[in-house]
């Protein structure tokens, strides 16, 4: 099975507290630590496991600037066979449809049976997989947390729906699936793994390589534009307990007792 996994470079939620800058219109960019979008690691792991079982190859592709190469390389260190960096000044500030347009062009240059995306990224949109599928006119399933694949022309997938219930579907190949966390346990990537792929050439494709009209992507093609980041007046929120740790604990214990929290 030929699998393409779309991966995005994002500020690592475990390493950063996302805050506004001093001007109050953008996030504070200094010292941000980046990594692969959490969901995409599950997608790459799943692709590797499927290929290990039934054969084929895994390609990872990312739309981004030069820095996105590091996440492609990291996923290759996990075990993906090939990497693609889709990069061009014309791609900057694309909206979801723009990103999907770029990925679609990359899909059409290959010969894939299945495309994986993560279910969600840092922007919280959960949109790329569904858009890409509709553009390709391939069937789509979102929030997939089980895949049963063999050599046939269909695969069985489970979608995680409300309450953790699972909606089972048969889906024809080729198809696009967005992968939900928890589907597997992504393998650990050590220094040695990274070193092994350190000098692998990662092809970089731009608008003309992909046959994309620059006006249909980037800021020009975007119907949806983020104007700024901000923090609204949030109202009171929680009463924050202050003082020494001992004082805070004494106060908290009283509150918990009063509310029946300590039996």
């Amino acid at each position: 099975m030929e699998i393409l996994v779309c991966v995005k470079r994002v500020p690592d939620p475990a390493e950063n507290e996302i805050e506004l800058n001093s001007a109050g219109n953008d996030i504070e960019q200094d010292d941000l630590v980046y990594s692969v979008n959490e969901w995409d690691n599950y997608a790459v792991e799943e692709a590797i496991q499927i290929v290990d079982k039934i054969g084929g190859s895994v390609t990872v592709a990312s739309v981004g600037d030069e820095d996105a190469e590091e996440v492609v390389r990291r996923e290759m260190a996990m075990g993906a066979d090939k990497g693609l960096l889709l990069s061009d000044d014309a791609f900057e500030n694309s909206d979801g449809k723009g990103i999907a347009t770029i990925l679609k062009a990359a899909v059409e240059k290959g010969n894939y049976d299945v495309i994986f995306t993560g279910a969600l990224a840092d922007d919280g949109a959960a949109q790329i997989g569904g858009m890409l599928a509709a553009m390709l006119d391939w069937p789509y399933a979102s929030l997939v947390n089980v895949i049963e694949a063999d050599d046939s022309k269909t695969i069985k997938v489970g979608r995680e729906i409300e309450g953790g219930n699972q909606e089972m579907n048969d889906i024809d190949l080729p198809c696009v699936l967005s992968i939900q966390t928890g589907i597997n346990e992504p393998r650990y990537v050590g220094i040695r793994g990274i070193r092994k792929v350190a000098s692998v050439e990662i092809p970089q494709l731009g608008a003309s390589d992909l046959g994309i009209d620059p006006d249909t992507v980037g800021a020009k093609g975007a119907k949806v534009k983020r104007v700024d980041y901000f923090m609204p007046e949030l109202g009171e929120g929680a009463e924050i307990l202050e003082g020494s740790t001992d004082e805070i604990i004494a106060e908290l214990v009283e509150r918990l007792k009063a509310k029946g929290g300590i039996k």
Binding site: G96, K97, A100, A119, G124, A125, A126, Q127, I128, G129, G130, M131, A133, A134, M135, Y140, A141, S142, L143, R159, E160, I161, E162, K223, V224
Partner: peptide, 23 residues
């Protein structure tokens, strides 16, 4: 924007050639 809406919305916007905003 629940598990059904996430399944439906993005692809629908492409087929309608309309803008999409989620959540």
């Amino acid at each position: 924007h629940d598990t059904f809406g996430m399944d439906l919305g993005p692809g629908l916007s492409i087929k309608l050639d309309a803008a999409f905003v989620s959540d």
